[in-house]
Write a protein that binds this DNA or RNA. Structure first.
Lengths: 223, 223
DNA sequence: ACCTGAACACCGTTCAAGT
DNA sequence: ACCTGAACACCGTTCAAGT
């Protein structure tokens, strides 16, 4: 499986793009985005920083590769032949859960426009939108609306998780703090935000996310 | 207007949070996110790096303040009393255009969950959704769907602009390159992306964005 | 072909010292 | 209260030199 360009078998523990990506994922998952440095990476891989550059182009390249690995796995774990409507919902929920488990994926995805991981999602959504019978001339609009929504929620969740991590708060404490900030906003200028503050800590991100998917699917159907 | 804590008038050209934010916006607009450093900032303001820290907490603080200034201006320029439906579309388009003009705003917004600039948008959207007559129990879902979508598109546009800038390409060249990458993907694995490649360079981001808003608005109405 | 690790050119942030 | 600028503790990336 692991071969050099001239076909020789490598030492079991030699460096490879995959091993680097796996190590990066491990660091990102356990310690967050800020912890992924070439120092931490080369220590974990017991090598020099320069060695890593033989296999990857840059830190951005690595981040996108790590993100892509998670996205590929997530999409791979999807049930194959469902009704298109259900398939889109399942895809969206799988992505939501993956980003919940790996917040850095959300952050990376939100700024990886047109790159491999987003193309994977685009493709899946596109196939299902076609299966839905959406005519040619609105397919792109339908697909990009769904994709933008999914990536938007990804980014927001990642930002929340990142902020919570920085302040060493769990989700409940973090939403509690945000709720208290919102409730202190001037009610004249922020009536809506103000009135929503109390509901913030109890709300179900996942259910809200799915509700948004349903709005879009309904909107596409109604077109 | 500009006073010290003990009420004395400051020199006209003395430092202030606003002057720093304006300088940051100027740098971000003319040279992009990567160009905003404390070195560039203190050179432009003819001061030391440390002086800036008297007025701002951190680079993140500054970035969010700069973003908020643009968002506040953008929302301020909105026509006041339109039909809720039209008001939401106008708000969305104004935001789209602002992010198109200041791509760094898109990037900052996408990771500023719950912070002042996103709350401003949340509030505006919330007020219009209420005016739309959406019942209490779905207001939050409706508002957060619209907000997530707007922020998602923001992030994607910012990412595109950033990538194009890095490679010194204009929009047309950039989309052309992306289109050619997409068209070279394996047609067996990526039939949808493949077939959309040709349409990519000619498509209208702004129209697609608005189509997405309409899907969501239709979906909310149909609920 | 692949790896080493020192060197380079940066960063954001802090802080003793000034006014 | 506000500003200075040197110092600190990092970064990602490169590259001559090794195997």
């Amino acid at each position: 499986m692991i071969k050099t360009a001239h076909g020789k078998q490598r030492r079991e523990d030699s460096l490879s793009r995959e091993r680097i990506v796996e190590a990066a994922i491990a660091i990102l998952d356990s310690s967050g985005e800020g912890a992924l440095t070439f120092k931490a990476l080369s220590q974990r891989l017991e090598t020099g920083a320069g060695a890593i550059y033989w296999h990857i182009d840059s830190k951005d390249d690595l981040l996108i590769a790590a993100c892509d690995a998670i996205v590929a796995r997530t999409l791979g774990g999807l049930p194959e032949n469902a009704v298109p409507d259900a398939a889109i919902r399942a895809l969206a929920l799988h992505m939501f859960d993956a980003i919940d488990a790996h917040p850095w994926v959300g952050a990376t995805l939100a700024r990886a426009a047109g790159q491999l991981p987003t193309v994977r999602i685009l493709e899946r959504v596109g196939q299902q939108v076609r299966a839905l019978g959406v005519p040619d001339d609105v397919q792109w609009a339908a697909v990009s609306a769904l994709l933008s929504y999914i990536l938007g929620v990804s980014g927001q969740n990642a930002a929340n998780a990142q902020l919570a991590r920085e302040r060493n708060l769990d989700r409940a404490d973090f939403l509690g703090e945000m709720s208290s900030v919102w409730s202190k906003l001037d009610p004249a200028g922020y009536p809506f935000t103000n009135s929503m503050a109390a509901r913030l800590p109890a709300h179900d991100d996942r259910a809200d996310f799915l509700a948004g998917i349903d709005f879009i699917l309904n909107g596409i159907a109604r077109r």
